[in-house]
Design a protein around this nucleic acid. Structure first.
Ligand SMILES: [Mn+2]
Ligand SMILES: [Mn+2]
Length: 565
DNA sequence: GTTGGGATTG
DNA sequence: GAATGTGTGTCTCAATCCCAACTT
DNA sequence: TGACACACATTCAA
């Protein structure tokens, strides 16, 4: 199914985005941003085409001689027109360092030997054995001025990228999506559910919010440019983070704070890390603070923080994260602390022959040779059935959560208010589970009708129909209900940690099995699912695998499958 | 001479 | 043998081109 | 370009 895009595809897409934002955000755009769109649309088509081509590429400077667009035969006049109207700079005043990425190794070597020849400074002919970075250093020392580069080539710099960023941010609500979303959709590669787009709902409802989000992305970008040991710059950067003025920004800023602070912690800048983590409201900020305090021997403060976490955890994950740590800490400073009771799931041990492929597939195939049918699904099964069953509620028309056609989920999907806002719908749907046939009907119906459409919980690639059929047949309705209930408690955190395998014995029933190869142990999120299984009576176990013929990795004469309990 | 990481394209 | 921290690989949209490191 | 699960190393407490 080769889908052809119209010849004007990138013009159309660009105009669509620009015009949407230009009209929807007329009250929030500043004058220069509006002019950016208005004047661009007055330029000749070849000029606009060239501008969009360059604007959608990842760098901002280009070599004219490397550009070849069959639909723009006269690049020179298009570029001249763009420069005339301020959308392009020809041969911008960049220093040698900024221009180097335009050059190949061969280019740099040629420039160097030309410069050396002029100065009668003979260097060895062996420039080509140097690595790229070494050549660049040589160039920085020996190429006096970017003029020598401009003698060899014409350079174009695309201007007004910052204005386009504003348009993209307003349109998508973020800066990680871009024009390729149009292409992927129109090629049929990622298809989105159709939901009502009300023009009154926008990603941002004030200029201040737009600016704050832009500032956040600036900081995020700058942090990625910094060296990990550049402590001062990171602290400075953290202090420049914008005040979070909506939930989305709060989430983004706190995630960046955590990222920076975690790095400071790694660099042993503990005090600064503590300060920054304290500004963050999101896990694992408090946990990290407690651990830092403990390494600083400030045990009582650390324990106090653990007590705070225990009494008002952000979520189950955060509460769980410090249980073992706090107990050890309490023992160290002889303070009282409830003894942590770790759930121990049922275990069994398998000795199998090692072969190519991951241990999960090996165990799956082993089970399939026994009298069972077994699938390696991890989170796919539970999440996908959830997504299919609640499909229309996920995409229910709630005010303000859909503002562009490229959303795979409503804006609030991973926030607690997702459940709060849709409480009656979710409750009614959950009550439907126990009615025989309803779950199966809705899941299969959505599997048919929505097949291939993006959904935050559905993984179409790994969700096979026979898995779905068997799971719906074997897993009792009450079990589905309890699985959904846990997912709804925290869609972000509980969508992970589901056991590797689902096993359907020929004799009936089912079981979730987590596979652990040599040296692997249960992760915390996996243990929490198992704890829950135990509480609600869902059969589950951990299957530890050892390799036949190996002891501690060295071969031993033995074979055959051994199973022990 | 191959390959592996990118950027670009539709 | 827990409990930590840290590093890796696998998803990737797929085809193509360019370029820089190399017997992988 | 992360999210997620796993692999591996180090440390520490019975
Ligand atoms: Mn797994
Ligand atoms: Mn596993």
């Amino acid at each position: 199914m080769a889908i052809e895009l119209p010849a004007d595809y990138y013009l159309d897409n660009f105009r669509d985005l620009l015009q949407f934002v230009r009209s929807t955000y007329a009250d929030l755009l500043i004058e220069s941003e509006k002019q950016f769109a208005d004047q661009l649309m007055d330029l000749s088509e070849p000029a606009v085409r060239l501008y969009i081509r360059l604007l959608c590429r990842s760098k901002s400077i280009f070599r004219l001689d490397k550009l070849h667009y069959s639909e723009i035969p006269d690049l020179i006049s298009a570029a001249a027109e763009l420069e005339e109207s301020g959308y392009l700079q020809i041969n911008p005043e960049y220093d040698v360092q900024s221009l180097l990425p335009l050059l190949t190794k061969q280019d740099i070597a040629n420039l160097l030997s030309a410069a050396a020849a002029c100065e009668a400074d003979q260097k060895g002919k062996s420039l080509s054995v140097l690595k790229r970075a070494e050549l660049e250093n040589l160039a920085l020392d020996n190429l006096p001025d970017s003029a020598v580069i401009f003698q060899q080539m014409t350079v174009l710099e695309v201007l007004n990228q910052d204005h386009f960023e504003v348009y993209k941010l307003c349109f998508f609500g973020n800066l990680y999506q871009d024009m390729t979303d149009y292409v992927l959709r129109d090629l049929g590669l990622t298809q989105f559910e159709t939901y009502e787009l009300d023009k009154q709902y926008r990603a941002f409802d004030s200029r201040e919010k737009i600016c704050s989000h832009l500032a956040y992305y600036q900081c995020s970008y700058r942090f990625d440019q910094l060296a990990p040991d550049d402590i001062d710059a990171q602290i400075q950067l953290a202090s420049e983070l914008p005040e979070p003025i909506d939930n989305a920004l709060q989430r983004r800023v706190d995630r960046l704070r955590n990222k920076i602070a975690r790095n400071l912690e790694r660099q042993k800048s503990y005090e600064q890390a503590l300060d920054l983590f304290e500004k963050s409201a999101r896990p694992p900020a408090r946990e990290r603070r407690a651990r830092i305090l403990a390494t600083l021997q400030r045990d009582h403060e650390a324990l106090e923080l653990c007590a705070q976490i225990a009494s008002s955890p952000f979520n189950e994950e955060e509460r769980h994260s410090v249980t073992a740590f706090a107990a050890r800490l309490a023992k160290r400073c002889e303070s009282p602390w409830p003894k942590p009771s770790l759930y121990k799931p049922p275990q069994h041990h398998l000795t199998l022959k090692n072969r190519e492929g991951s241990v999960e597939y090996i165990v799956r195939d082993y089970f399939n040779e026994q009298s069972t049918n077994c699938f390696y699904t991890e989170n796919v099964l539970c999440n996908s059935v959830f997504g299919l069953f609640f499909w229309d509620i996920v995409f229910a028309p709630v005010a303000g959560v859909f503002y562009n056609p490229f959303q795979q989920a409503p804006a609030d999907f991973y926030e607690p208010e997702f459940v709060r806002t849709r409480e009656p719908l979710l409750k009614a749907r959950l009550d439907m589970v126990r009615n025989p046939g309803q779950l199966r009907r809705l899941v299969l119906q959505h599997y048919e009708r929505k097949h291939g459409l993006q959904n935050p919980m559905v993984n179409w690639r790994y969700l096979e129909l026979d898995l779905l059929e068997q799971a719906l047949e074997r897993i009792p309705l009450v079990d589905w209900e309890t699985l959904f209930q846990r997912l709804l408690l925290d869609l972000r955190a509980h969508r992970t940690g589901f056991p590797d395998l689902v096993v359907f014995p020929d004799v009936g029933g089912y079981e979730f099995v987590e596979v652990k190869g040599p040296g692997d142990t249960l992760q915390k999120n996996q243990l929490r699912w198992m704890e829950y299984f135990a509480k609600v009576g869902i059969k589950h176990s951990v299957c530890h695998v050892e390799w036949a013929g190996e002891i501690d990795g060295s071969p031993v004469v033995e074979e055959s499958v051994i199973e022990t309990d």
